[in-house]
Design a protein around this nucleic acid. Structure first.
Lengths: 344, 344
DNA sequence: TATTGAGGGTCTATTACTGTCCCCAATGTA
DNA sequence: TACATTGGGGACAGTAATAGACCCTCAATA
């Protein structure tokens, strides 16, 4: 039995303390300089409570309070770094990963502690984790495909800007979606390519267009070229979404959406809608990767977090069992809960 | 930085929690079955507080509450065992030992966490620690001398009853003192000998007798024999006392006592009174080990705990720098405080 | 210069904690 | 058998700690 086990036994409330302090310290670190009130809004803790905690952390020399706001000291920074692993162990993330691997019957799972719905930094962690993983598996002359969404945007952001391999090509795996440039696959692919000091291609095709336009578009040389590259992709990184919210975001006709949901669609990835067993229910009309290509890619990485993504993750995990799923603790626990309930 | 360091930084109040829980759990373990009120008296914590803590420990499965009192479960027992080391590290006992070695300029120090004045179990710990140490250094045909006092009694009590060496002889190092049979050197020597499955000799001479009687007594064959053995002693284990309280206990004339204190006597060991530099101020008239013999013994172990023993320990530590001092945290910290103040 | 966002101070309501006592069950003893 | 002792659980009131709300002043910035 190590210290963590003992403490869990004899003083479980330690975790709550560590949790809240870690959260505060980390949030200050990533937002410094920040004031009490700003922090209070950000992490949903009363201003007064933050003040008490901050006073303790200040007394311990982990942060400095100045007139412009609060800063984390060098020591505080070190504590944060060390706490990352501790929190993982504390929450039993390793065990959780093993259980989830078994439950979903897939080979690779990485879980990040926390709940990305409730804590913005957890999304950041997922991005960081994914980027670390990516850097590890990347090789010379690789073609990397990436989709859109806030999660993918975070990943590109968290990739450290230095070369890890030669002649990397990043392409968007799917046509664009949404108005926000920042979260479109094109901009994300470009950003990622720049970070990796590689090149990139763009896919200027709107999502969910009618069939005629689509066919016309496919004849354009630029587009054609990218489409062909998609089949040669080595790594695909994609976000996993809920079927309902994605249908909403793509402004599918209400009728179509309803029919799809009735057929059991719960998850969405690269424009495809799946039921919980991974059956392809519907595909939105756009250019980009299709299921056949998906199944022939060497390395696929699906990323999503938050309780509400649990079913979507289950759906996608059913497609291929050599996928790498990167998710957060909240989603992981929810999935296990769902499966436990079903097998009761 | 390991977990303990991190926790010390970010959540120092963890220690207080661990401390109180450990204390409660341990006290229940050594006194089980025991009730709330009994425990409350023993460790000086309000009944209600104990109740709250006990409820938590119960919930965690570390103890069971029955109609006859509380019991520690198997798991609780395991937690106690593991916590011992953790508490040591938590309190920085290893560093404290190093500092004390330097400050007292002696070679061997063992410190037990806590304050034996305030917590009865700490005395027990000192006894246990000393007995473990003794068992480690003991060899065949050794002659072990031991003095009287409650601390020595605890040591004999804590020695596990099994043979560690052949032909061990235990002798009292000094004449008897006090009315309580249990804490007299004779009974302690006998007890220790039985535990070690060795033999023992007794020294039936009262402490602090007049010179004439003493000389007469020394001619008795039985006594003579033991006295001679004292010079051949391999290990001496002795308690360290305060000069004033020991003078009191030996019922020295008020005048004599006063003079002694004025001369700077602060510590007492095996009937000798020392000032803080280790100068022999006074020797109570009785048979038993003298300073010359003391200096020629191979292994000497002095044991004492509690803040008020600090000066006495300092005095005795000045005698020989190859002594092994076994003490508690309270005394250790007090000594360092005294020295720090003096060198300011 | 006006405004915004920062920390610090302080009062109050509320919550949690703790000391105290009572009750009853089980156990051991006269 | 009756009684005293010691055990746990329940309940309540007083107190201490905590959290919320609002104020102030100060400094940076537009």
């Amino acid at each position: 039995m190590d210290l963590i086990e003992i403490e869990k036994k004899i003083a479980p409330e330690i975790f709550d303390i560590l949790d809240i302090r870690y959260n505060i310290l980390r949030n200050i670190y990533y937002n410094q300089p920040i004031g009490r009130r700003g922090l209070s809004n950000k992490i949903n803790i009363g201003e007064r409570t933050i003040r008490t905690e901050v006073n303790i952390l200040k007394k311990q020399g982990l942060l400095n309070v100045e007139s412009v706001g609060m800063y984390v000291t060098e020591e505080g920074k070190r504590v944060i770094e060390n706490l990352e692993d501790i929190i993982r162990e504390l929450r039993g993330i390793s065990e959780l990963e093993k259980r989830l691997k078994r439950v979903l019957n897939i080979e690779n799972i990485i879980i990040v502690p926390g709940n990305s719905d409730k804590n913005g930094l957890v999304l950041k962690d997922m991005g960081k984790t994914t980027s670390m993983y990516l850097r590890k598996i990347i090789q010379d002359n690789f073609i990397i495909g990436i989709t859109g969404g806030t999660t993918m945007a975070k990943i590109a952001e968290e990739v450290p800007a230095n070369k890890v391999a030669d002649n990397i090509l990043v392409i968007p795996a799917r046509g664009g979606l949404g108005k926000d440039v920042e979260t479109q696959s094109n901009s994300i692919a470009a950003k990622l390519a720049k970070k990796l000091q590689g090149s990139y291609k763009l896919l200027h095709v709107p999502d969910n267009i009618d069939r005629e336009t689509l066919e016309a578009v496919l004849k354009i040389t630029d587009i054609k070229e990218v489409i062909e590259l998609i089949d040669k992709m080595n790594i695909l990184i994609f976000g996993i979404g809920r079927a309902d919210t994605m249908a909403e975001r793509r402004q599918l006709p209400e009728k179509q959406k309803k029919r799809m949901i009735e057929k059991g669609a719960v998850g969405e990835a690269f424009g495809h809608y799946f039921d919980i067993e991974g059956n392809d229910i519907y595909e939105s009309l756009t250019v980009g990767i299709n299921l056949k290509a998906y199944n022939s890619i060497d390395t696929i990485i699906g990323v999503a977090g938050g309780e509400n993504k649990s079913e979507a993750i289950m759906a996608v995990a059913s497609l291929r069992n050599d996928i790498t799923i990167i998710t957060d603790e909240a989603a992981a626990r929810k999935i296990i809960k769902i499966v436990d309930k079903a097998t009761e």
